[in-house]
Amino acid sequence: MSTKDVMIWRSNRAGTHYVADTVVVEEPVEIRIRFRDSNDKWGERPLSITMRTPGDDQALAVGFMFTEGMLLENQLDKVTIGLENTVTVHFKPDVRPELEKLQRNFYATSSCGVCGKSSLDSLGYTYENLQWAENLPSLSTELIASLPQKLTEYQSLFDETGGIHAAGLFDWEGNLMLSAEDVGRHNAVDKIAGKALINQSLPFNQHILVLSGRACFELLHKALALNIPVVVAVGAPSSLAIETAERFGQTLIGFARDGRFNVYSGPERLELQNETRAII
Protein backbone atom coordinates (compact mmCIF):
# COMPACT_ATOMS: atom_id res chain seq x y z
CA MET A 1 0.00 0.00 0.00
CA SER A 2 1.31 3.46 -0.95
CA THR A 3 -1.03 5.40 1.35
CA LYS A 4 -2.44 4.95 4.84
CA ASP A 5 -5.45 6.43 6.61
CA VAL A 6 -4.85 8.02 10.01
CA MET A 7 -7.03 9.94 12.46
CA ILE A 8 -5.99 13.53 13.15
CA TRP A 9 -7.19 16.67 14.92
CA ARG A 10 -7.88 19.32 12.25
CA SER A 11 -8.20 22.89 13.46
CA ASN A 12 -9.50 25.88 11.48
CA ARG A 13 -11.72 28.92 12.00
CA ALA A 14 -14.76 26.67 12.23
CA GLY A 15 -13.26 24.79 15.18
CA THR A 16 -11.36 21.58 15.82
CA HIS A 17 -12.55 18.23 14.49
CA TYR A 18 -11.34 14.64 14.82
CA VAL A 19 -11.25 13.41 11.19
CA ALA A 20 -9.64 10.86 8.89
CA ASP A 21 -6.66 11.87 6.78
CA THR A 22 -4.55 10.09 4.16
CA VAL A 23 -0.75 10.08 4.39
CA VAL A 24 1.94 8.62 2.17
CA VAL A 25 3.59 5.40 3.37
CA GLU A 26 7.32 5.39 4.05
CA GLU A 27 8.91 1.98 4.62
CA PRO A 28 12.36 0.41 4.21
CA VAL A 29 13.22 -1.92 1.35
CA GLU A 30 16.32 -4.09 1.25
CA ILE A 31 18.05 -4.31 -2.12
CA ARG A 32 19.93 -7.58 -2.64
CA ILE A 33 22.10 -8.85 -5.49
CA ARG A 34 22.44 -12.38 -6.87
CA PHE A 35 25.49 -13.31 -8.95
CA ARG A 36 28.05 -15.95 -9.83
CA ASP A 37 31.31 -15.54 -7.96
CA SER A 38 34.84 -16.18 -9.15
CA ASN A 39 34.44 -19.88 -8.27
CA ASP A 40 31.39 -20.08 -10.57
CA LYS A 41 29.05 -20.54 -7.62
CA TRP A 42 25.80 -18.62 -7.20
CA GLY A 43 25.76 -16.25 -4.25
CA GLU A 44 23.44 -13.63 -2.82
CA ARG A 45 24.12 -10.71 -0.52
CA PRO A 46 22.46 -7.51 0.68
CA LEU A 47 23.56 -4.27 -0.98
CA SER A 48 21.57 -1.54 0.75
CA ILE A 49 18.47 -0.61 2.69
CA THR A 50 16.62 2.52 1.62
CA MET A 51 13.42 4.24 2.67
CA ARG A 52 10.80 4.47 -0.04
CA THR A 53 7.09 4.55 -0.85
CA PRO A 54 6.00 0.97 -1.70
CA GLY A 55 5.30 0.43 -5.38
CA ASP A 56 7.61 -0.11 -8.36
CA ASP A 57 10.15 -1.70 -6.01
CA GLN A 58 11.72 -3.72 -8.81
CA ALA A 59 12.22 -0.59 -10.89
CA LEU A 60 13.60 1.27 -7.86
CA ALA A 61 16.27 -1.37 -7.19
CA VAL A 62 17.36 -1.65 -10.81
CA GLY A 63 17.26 2.11 -11.38
CA PHE A 64 19.26 2.86 -8.24
CA MET A 65 21.99 0.42 -9.23
CA PHE A 66 22.05 1.70 -12.81
CA THR A 67 22.17 5.44 -12.10
CA GLU A 68 24.88 4.92 -9.48
CA GLY A 69 27.07 2.87 -11.82
CA MET A 70 26.62 -0.48 -10.06
CA LEU A 71 24.76 -2.15 -12.93
CA LEU A 72 25.33 -1.81 -16.67
CA GLU A 73 22.56 -1.91 -19.23
CA ASN A 74 23.55 -5.34 -20.56
CA GLN A 75 24.17 -7.00 -17.17
CA LEU A 76 20.62 -7.37 -15.86
CA ASP A 77 19.07 -10.83 -15.98
CA LYS A 78 15.93 -10.30 -13.89
CA VAL A 79 14.68 -8.75 -10.68
CA THR A 80 12.49 -10.52 -8.12
CA ILE A 81 10.42 -9.51 -5.10
CA GLY A 82 10.97 -11.43 -1.87
CA LEU A 83 9.30 -11.51 1.51
CA GLU A 84 9.29 -8.66 4.05
CA ASN A 85 10.25 -5.77 1.76
CA THR A 86 13.18 -7.29 -0.10
CA VAL A 87 13.98 -7.11 -3.80
CA THR A 88 16.79 -8.99 -5.53
CA VAL A 89 18.61 -7.87 -8.66
CA HIS A 90 19.98 -10.86 -10.60
CA PHE A 91 23.09 -10.41 -12.71
CA LYS A 92 23.35 -12.44 -15.91
CA PRO A 93 25.16 -15.79 -15.43
CA ASP A 94 28.22 -14.63 -17.39
CA VAL A 95 28.64 -11.42 -15.35
CA ARG A 96 31.13 -11.38 -12.49
CA PRO A 97 30.41 -8.17 -10.57
CA GLU A 98 33.25 -6.47 -8.72
CA LEU A 99 31.89 -6.67 -5.19
CA GLU A 100 34.40 -4.23 -3.74
CA LYS A 101 33.45 -1.67 -6.38
CA LEU A 102 29.74 -2.22 -5.69
CA GLN A 103 30.26 -1.69 -1.97
CA ARG A 104 32.45 1.36 -2.55
CA ASN A 105 29.89 2.94 -4.88
CA PHE A 106 27.11 2.28 -2.41
CA TYR A 107 28.89 3.89 0.52
CA ALA A 108 29.88 6.92 -1.56
CA THR A 109 26.25 7.30 -2.63
CA SER A 110 24.60 6.74 0.73
CA SER A 111 26.99 8.77 2.88
CA CYS A 112 28.12 11.33 0.30
CA GLY A 113 31.71 10.24 0.63
CA VAL A 114 32.77 12.55 -2.21
CA CYS A 115 30.63 15.66 -1.91
CA GLY A 116 30.80 19.06 -3.54
CA LYS A 117 33.49 19.84 -6.08
CA SER A 118 35.04 16.37 -5.79
CA SER A 119 31.69 14.84 -6.73
CA LEU A 120 31.55 16.96 -9.86
CA ASP A 121 35.15 16.11 -10.72
CA SER A 122 34.44 12.40 -10.26
CA LEU A 123 31.75 12.60 -12.96
CA GLY A 124 34.23 13.90 -15.51
CA TYR A 125 35.66 10.46 -16.22
CA THR A 126 32.27 8.74 -16.28
CA TYR A 127 30.66 11.15 -18.74
CA GLU A 128 33.65 12.48 -20.66
CA ASN A 129 32.33 10.96 -23.92
CA LEU A 130 28.69 11.88 -23.40
CA GLN A 131 26.93 12.47 -26.72
CA TRP A 132 23.68 14.44 -26.92
CA ALA A 133 21.22 14.01 -29.77
CA GLU A 134 21.91 16.52 -32.53
CA ASN A 135 19.74 18.53 -34.92
CA LEU A 136 16.70 18.51 -32.66
CA PRO A 137 14.19 21.34 -33.13
CA SER A 138 14.21 24.08 -30.51
CA LEU A 139 11.84 23.62 -27.59
CA SER A 140 9.21 26.33 -27.35
CA THR A 141 8.66 28.25 -24.13
CA GLU A 142 5.01 27.19 -24.26
CA LEU A 143 5.96 23.51 -24.27
CA ILE A 144 8.39 23.88 -21.36
CA ALA A 145 5.86 25.87 -19.33
CA SER A 146 3.20 23.19 -19.90
CA LEU A 147 5.22 20.22 -18.61
CA PRO A 148 4.83 20.66 -14.81
CA GLN A 149 1.04 20.85 -15.17
CA LYS A 150 1.06 17.74 -17.37
CA LEU A 151 3.02 15.91 -14.68
CA THR A 152 0.52 16.83 -11.96
CA GLU A 153 -2.18 15.03 -13.93
CA TYR A 154 -0.36 11.77 -13.13
CA GLN A 155 0.39 12.56 -9.47
CA SER A 156 -2.40 10.52 -7.93
CA LEU A 157 -0.56 10.00 -4.64
CA PHE A 158 0.12 13.72 -4.31
CA ASP A 159 -3.57 14.43 -4.83
CA GLU A 160 -4.36 12.07 -1.95
CA THR A 161 -1.60 13.03 0.46
CA GLY A 162 0.15 16.26 -0.60
CA GLY A 163 3.41 14.75 0.66
CA ILE A 164 5.23 13.02 -2.16
CA HIS A 165 7.67 13.80 -4.97
CA ALA A 166 7.21 13.01 -8.64
CA ALA A 167 9.36 12.72 -11.74
CA GLY A 168 8.21 12.48 -15.33
CA LEU A 169 10.01 11.67 -18.56
CA PHE A 170 8.66 13.48 -21.64
CA ASP A 171 9.59 13.14 -25.29
CA TRP A 172 10.65 16.15 -27.38
CA GLU A 173 7.02 16.85 -28.32
CA GLY A 174 5.93 17.01 -24.68
CA ASN A 175 4.27 13.59 -24.41
CA LEU A 176 4.67 11.81 -21.08
CA MET A 177 6.55 8.53 -21.51
CA LEU A 178 7.24 7.43 -17.91
CA SER A 179 6.38 8.76 -14.46
CA ALA A 180 6.90 7.78 -10.84
CA GLU A 181 6.07 9.04 -7.36
CA ASP A 182 7.95 8.46 -4.12
CA VAL A 183 8.56 10.03 -0.73
CA GLY A 184 12.17 10.42 -1.89
CA ARG A 185 12.85 12.63 -4.93
CA HIS A 186 15.86 10.48 -5.86
CA ASN A 187 13.73 7.34 -5.68
CA ALA A 188 11.24 8.76 -8.16
CA VAL A 189 13.99 9.24 -10.75
CA ASP A 190 15.47 5.82 -9.99
CA LYS A 191 12.05 4.23 -10.55
CA ILE A 192 11.92 5.83 -14.00
CA ALA A 193 15.44 4.55 -14.73
CA GLY A 194 14.51 1.06 -13.60
CA LYS A 195 11.37 0.96 -15.73
CA ALA A 196 13.43 2.01 -18.73
CA LEU A 197 16.13 -0.59 -18.14
CA ILE A 198 13.66 -3.42 -17.52
CA ASN A 199 11.70 -2.48 -20.66
CA GLN A 200 14.89 -1.89 -22.67
CA SER A 201 13.82 1.62 -23.71
CA LEU A 202 17.13 3.46 -23.23
CA PRO A 203 18.71 5.86 -24.20
CA PHE A 204 16.84 9.08 -23.51
CA ASN A 205 19.00 11.57 -25.41
CA GLN A 206 15.89 13.14 -26.99
CA HIS A 207 13.88 13.52 -23.79
CA ILE A 208 13.08 15.91 -20.96
CA LEU A 209 13.08 15.06 -17.25
CA VAL A 210 10.58 17.01 -15.13
CA LEU A 211 10.95 17.15 -11.33
CA SER A 212 8.18 18.18 -8.96
CA GLY A 213 10.66 19.70 -6.51
CA ARG A 214 14.09 21.24 -6.58
CA ALA A 215 17.06 20.18 -8.72
CA CYS A 216 20.13 19.05 -6.80
CA PHE A 217 23.46 17.61 -7.91
CA GLU A 218 22.40 13.98 -7.38
CA LEU A 219 19.38 14.36 -9.66
CA LEU A 220 21.47 15.95 -12.43
CA HIS A 221 23.91 13.05 -12.05
CA LYS A 222 21.07 10.54 -12.48
CA ALA A 223 19.84 12.44 -15.54
CA LEU A 224 23.34 12.20 -17.00
CA ALA A 225 23.34 8.43 -16.39
CA LEU A 226 20.14 8.27 -18.45
CA ASN A 227 21.61 10.57 -21.14
CA ILE A 228 18.83 13.13 -20.63
CA PRO A 229 19.72 16.55 -22.13
CA VAL A 230 17.00 18.72 -20.51
CA VAL A 231 15.96 18.87 -16.85
CA VAL A 232 12.98 20.97 -15.76
CA ALA A 233 12.37 21.51 -12.04
CA VAL A 234 9.38 23.12 -10.35
CA GLY A 235 11.68 24.25 -7.54
CA ALA A 236 15.09 25.86 -7.33
CA PRO A 237 18.36 24.35 -8.55
CA SER A 238 21.41 24.18 -6.30
CA SER A 239 24.70 25.81 -7.28
CA LEU A 240 26.33 22.42 -7.88
CA ALA A 241 23.40 21.33 -10.06
CA ILE A 242 23.98 24.40 -12.22
CA GLU A 243 27.72 23.73 -12.43
CA THR A 244 27.00 20.11 -13.40
CA ALA A 245 24.61 21.15 -16.16
CA GLU A 246 27.06 23.73 -17.49
CA ARG A 247 29.99 21.31 -17.47
CA PHE A 248 28.20 18.56 -19.40
CA GLY A 249 26.04 20.66 -21.69
CA GLN A 250 22.66 19.98 -20.14
CA THR A 251 19.79 22.43 -20.26
CA LEU A 252 18.68 23.14 -16.70
CA ILE A 253 15.42 24.97 -15.98
CA GLY A 254 14.10 25.88 -12.54
CA PHE A 255 11.06 27.54 -10.95
CA ALA A 256 8.89 26.19 -13.77
CA ARG A 257 5.44 27.10 -12.52
CA ASP A 258 2.50 29.33 -13.39
CA GLY A 259 3.59 29.64 -17.02
CA ARG A 260 7.09 30.94 -16.28
CA PHE A 261 10.57 29.52 -15.65
CA ASN A 262 14.25 30.38 -15.26
CA VAL A 263 16.95 28.99 -17.57
CA TYR A 264 20.22 28.32 -15.72
CA SER A 265 22.13 26.42 -18.41
CA GLY A 266 21.82 25.40 -22.05
CA PRO A 267 19.49 28.09 -23.48
CA GLU A 268 20.52 27.09 -27.01
CA ARG A 269 17.99 24.21 -26.94
CA LEU A 270 15.13 26.65 -26.36
CA GLU A 271 13.22 28.99 -28.63
CA LEU A 272 13.33 32.04 -26.37
CA GLN A 273 11.03 34.91 -27.29
CA ASN A 274 12.06 38.59 -27.14
CA GLU A 275 15.40 37.82 -25.52
CA THR A 276 17.11 40.72 -23.81
CA ARG A 277 20.31 40.84 -21.82
CA ALA A 278 20.86 42.97 -18.75
CA ILE A 279 24.07 44.94 -18.38
CA ILE A 280 25.85 43.75 -15.21
Results as ranks from 00 to 15, higher is better:
86 T>N: 01
58 Q>H: 13
168 G>Y: 05
36 R>S: 01
108 A>Q: 13
101 K>H: 07
234 V>M: 14
275 E>I: 12
103 Q>A: 12
93 P>I: 05
48 S>Q: 01
71 L>W: 04
270 L>W: 02
259 G>V: 07
154 Y>L: 07
187 N>W: 07
79 V>H: 01
240 L>E: 14
84 E>H: 05
41 K>W: 03
142 E>S: 11
191 K>V: 08
219 L>P: 00
129 N>Q: 14
177 M>H: 06
238 S>M: 09
27 E>R: 11
111 S>I: 07
12 N>D: 15
64 F>L: 15
253 I>C: 02
225 A>L: 05
40 D>Y: 08
107 Y>R: 14
118 S>R: 09
170 F>M: 11
202 L>T: 06
203 P>D: 11
7 M>D: 04
19 V>Y: 01
7 M>G: 01
280 I>A: 12
273 Q>N: 05
54 P>H: 05
157 L>A: 06
99 L>T: 01
196 A>W: 00
46 P>I: 04
188 A>T: 13
229 P>N: 10
63 G>W: 13
249 G>T: 04
199 N>G: 04
202 L>C: 08
70 M>T: 04
167 A>N: 06
253 I>N: 03
105 N>C: 06
95 V>A: 10
252 L>K: 01
71 L>Q: 08
263 V>M: 08
45 R>W: 04
102 L>P: 03
78 K>M: 12
3 T>P: 02
42 W>N: 02
223 A>Q: 07
274 N>H: 10
180 A>T: 07
156 S>W: 14
85 N>R: 05
163 G>P: 02
105 N>I: 01
220 L>S: 12
236 A>G: 01
179 S>M: 02
158 F>L: 11
279 I>M: 09
13 R>A: 07
85 N>F: 00
137 P>R: 12
229 P>D: 04
267 P>N: 06
210 V>W: 08
200 Q>S: 13
23 V>E: 15
120 L>T: 10
75 Q>F: 02
258 D>K: 12
50 T>F: 03
185 R>N: 10
234 V>Q: 14
208 I>C: 01
39 N>D: 14
260 R>Q: 06
277 R>F: 11
250 Q>D: 02
42 W>S: 04
72 L>A: 13
230 V>H: 13
234 V>A: 14
114 V>N: 11
242 I>P: 00
121 D>A: 15
114 V>Q: 12
71 L>F: 10
151 L>W: 09
103 Q>P: 00
197 L>T: 04
261 F>A: 03
97 P>V: 04
166 A>P: 10
211 L>A: 09
112 C>P: 00
165 H>E: 09
32 R>E: 08
45 R>P: 02
154 Y>I: 02
10 R>Q: 11
195 K>M: 14
147 L>P: 03
216 C>M: 00
94 D>L: 08
227 N>Q: 15
93 P>V: 11
155 Q>M: 15
251 T>Q: 08
123 L>F: 12
92 K>E: 11
210 V>A: 10
83 L>E: 11
23 V>R: 15
129 N>V: 04
57 D>L: 15
22 T>N: 02
43 G>W: 05
250 Q>G: 03
119 S>L: 11
179 S>E: 08
183 V>W: 01
200 Q>I: 02
39 N>C: 05
123 L>E: 12
205 N>Q: 12
257 R>L: 13
185 R>T: 03
22 T>S: 06
144 I>D: 07
108 A>T: 12
243 E>N: 15
88 T>H: 05
214 R>G: 14
167 A>V: 06
170 F>A: 08
12 N>R: 10
276 T>Y: 06
47 L>C: 07
144 I>F: 07
